[in-house]
Amino acid sequence: PESADLRALAKHMFESYNKAFPITKAKSRAIMAGKTGDKSPFVIYDMNSLKAGEERIKFKQTPLQEQNTEVEIRIFQRCQFRSVEAVREITEFAKSIPGFINLDLNDQVTLLKYGVHEVIFSMLASLMNKDGLLIAAGQGFMTREFLKSLRKPFCDIMEPKFEFAMKFNGLGLNDCDIAIFIAVVILSGDRPGLINVKPIEELQDSILQALALQLKISHPDSPQLFAKLLQKMTDLRQIVTEHVQLLHTIRKTEAEMSLHPLLQEIYKDLY
């Protein structure tokens, strides 16, 4: 019966994940392999294709003063809009974790404040391959080389995420594995300022058991996968720390840049 409970928990997290996140790894891989029957993504690999892509791709939000803004700032603003959207999706997912909404409300805020970027970078890996990443819900594909060719400091934003993604994708996780993993990440009992750690650790413990069983069943040939995946949590913290430092630099040096209020809240006093 205990393992039946853990399987039910895994199934529940997978269903919430599919409900909360519009693009899954399976969908992203199908788009990249051209197996969806839709148009293939528009490839952005230089300034001309960027311009053509901006006309062709239907973006969810069109930031104001777009035309006259520098390319790097435009790309960065779109990243911000997508991040804000992702925070909303992750919040919705977190609320579906059994017991999460019964935690102290301050602790819910803390868990999201520290967890959302680790979740964003875990899930971003699903949209990436070694050559680039899917953008705008799979309508576009921006190459890694193009992102590297942007002026400093913007060229430094995505490269560490690609490096992490290549290692993370090497684990061969499926969407159900990822769903449970991000729930484990959110329920980290060692975030600074938590008031009531014990119930968080208890929730995380049952999700960890569900993850261990899930990996055993879906990857019977990789007995070390659970341990390897838990090690990735350390890498994620490192990436977020570097990301926050880079954003501080950008805010100091780029007068034109504005940071969305939700992201300001999250980054303030983070690390």
Partner: peptide
């Protein structure tokens, strides 16, 4: 903490509320 994280707090209460994208 809630005061310093008004939007996050609002999303937790009602994730359909607008965040002024």
């Amino acid at each position: 903490l809630k005061e310093k994280h008004k939007i996050l707090h609002r999303l937790l209460q009602d994730s359909t509320s607008p965040v002024d994208l």
